[in-house]
């Protein structure tokens, strides 16, 4: 499954990083603690979080994540979106809570 398919099936907003929508998604990780994601997320995963600052993209890039989903209608900071474009890692959004979007994403990619 690609990030683009997840955007379509879960009706997500694409803030930036469109050039990375063909990235393959291997799973997901949910956390708002940056060191937790740094230590425990893995390449190709989608990161679900409420953090909107630029360091999110630094971590997404270092960990080679497939995409980031901001929950609860949160919008990225301007420099966060800019770095997502540079790194070509999609920055996505939903009005759903972390709980809801995680459940839906899990259903979608477990098959």
């Amino acid at each position: 499954m690609t990030a683009a398919e997840i955007v379509n099936k879960l009706d997500l907003q694409v803030f930036s990083g469109e050039n990375g929508l063909n990235r393959k998604v291997s799973g997901g990780y949910v956390s708002d603690l940056l060191s937790d994601v740094m230590g425990n997320a893995d390449e190709g995963q989608v990161w679900i979080t409420l953090q909107t600052h630029k360091n999110v993209m630094a971590i997404a890039s270092l960990k080679e994540l497939a995409a980031v989903i901001l929950v609860n209608g949160n919008k990225p900071d301007e420099d966060t979106a800019r770095q997502s474009n540079e790194e070509e890692i999609p920055l996505l959004g939903t009005s759903m809570s972390a709980f809801e979007i995680t459940g839906k994403l899990y259903e979608l990619i477990k098959k």
């Binding site: 940056l34 953090q51 360091n55």
Partner: peptide, 16 residues
């Protein structure tokens, strides 16, 4: 509030 400072930094370094 930024999601740093959870007390995982040095432990993560030690682990890796």
């Amino acid at each position: 509030e930024m999601g740093f400072g959870a007390g995982m930094g040095l432990p993560n370094m030690k682990k890796n």
